[in-house]
Design a protein around this nucleic acid. Structure first.
Lengths: 216, 216
DNA sequence: GATAGTGGATAGTGTTGGTATCCATAGTGG
DNA sequence: CCACTATGGATACCAACACTATCCACTATC
């Protein structure tokens, strides 16, 4: 297919597709002439992946490029490659510099939960940043809350790993893993909000109030 | 205190503070002269709140302004005000337009789980967007996965509501609720990633491998 | 052979989240 | 009292980001 069809089938405007080509997010099509190229289904699916990661996942173009580069590289095994990719997925901005006490708390937490961890994993630093953010905002997280959240996180991680390992043994396993992880963050945030609404109604409204609210 | 001290104690540069004043994220100090004003602790804590929401929570300046405006308005009760604020917290970009089938699935899901919901709540539309994102990326979410995540979301919401209702009855309850909700998204995402690392190691490494990995 | 479409390059745009500069005025050490 | 720094406030500027527009020589197609 040519660029017009690629655009039509993906819903992405042609100039944007050209932009992604320039930026290396989308491989060039197979050249058939000085100014003609053919794109295949792999381009279409790559394009959809890019859109999902940027729009729903909130990743920047630069991050998507890095992640895709890692996904595309041959060599290391699936498990360690997946680990490499995960490390790149951004969690927090770097505008807050945690104190050593926050880092210490993060390490103590994973140790206390007996979680396996890499001491240099960015998620560990990210935890320190989040703890610092709470602290600086005047609402520090308690150990107890951390633990209750951790319980849920463990459950969720089991679902995540099941979903990932359940992927068919194709070459786009990593792609699927990335999508499920990145979009999974958003999915969970949304479900959490919906569950909060329910729980809040449960606690604050009686049956009549619920019926009234539901009907506008 | 004057602006220099405010800057020093918050770590936010003076020009940025002036920017927040311009943008209405921070109320003006009490004027003591044509070009002098005094700031109090409430300014400092407001400033820290703004920073936490933008840097850790990832909220835009415009969103923070809207949320703060709502928090500051008197009138409606705490419960419904909190609901109003929550509706404003962004979950997904609006670049993806879900199909009616996605919306239908979102509604069916909350109904099936017997969750109380407002038909016009943005989180419901956000769920449709996320489902659409997965679908368009070629990795649709199964009902079973949705259900497993929902279980965890319910647990999490209980923790969230406990944390919020555990806040002391001060005037900044809403502020605390906002912080805990927004930063909570990030906190959970981080914990999830850490739990994934653990779960993945659990499944893929033997004891020797774990020891080796841990030691670099 | 006219017309529309293509790949590729280069330049421009709108938004966001700040910085920098300037000014008249206020506080402060000597 | 006077030099000097700091302040509040306004305005202008800036860098990054994610596109979008234009242009060109060329190709495909009707």
């Amino acid at each position: 297919m040519r660029i017009a069809e690629l655009s039509e089938r993906s819903g992405v405007p042609i100039p944007t597709i050209k932009y992604y080509l320039r930026e290396g997010l989308l491989p060039r099509g197979e050249a058939t002439g000085r100014n003609q190229a053919r794109y295949g289904n792999e381009h279409l699916s790559r394009l959809r992946l890019v859109r999902a990661l940027t729009t729903v996942g909130g990743l920047s173009v630069a991050t998507v490029r890095e992640v895709l580069a890692e996904v595309g590289e041959p060599g290391v095994g699936l498990h360690s490659k997946l680990g490499l990719v995960m490390r790149r997925l951004p969690l927090v901005g770097d505008d807050i510099e945690p104190r050593e006490e926050d880092r210490e708390r993060a390490r103590a937490f994973v140790t206390r939960r007996d979680w396996f961890f890499y001491p240099d994993h960015p998620a560990l630093e990210a935890l320190a940043v989040v703890l610092a953010g709470h602290r600086e905002a005047g609402h520090p997280v308690t150990e107890a809350d951390l633990d209750r959240y951790a319980e849920s996180a463990e459950q969720i991680a089991r679902v995540d790993l099941d979903r990932i390992s359940g992927l068919p043994e194709a070459e786009d396993v990593l792609e699927g893993a990335v999508i499920k992880t990145v979009l999974g963050d958003t999915l969970l945030a949304v479900l959490r909000r919906l569950a909060q609404v329910d729980e809040s109604a449960e606690r604050n409204l009686d049956e009549a109030g619920r019926r009234a609210a539901r009907e506008g």
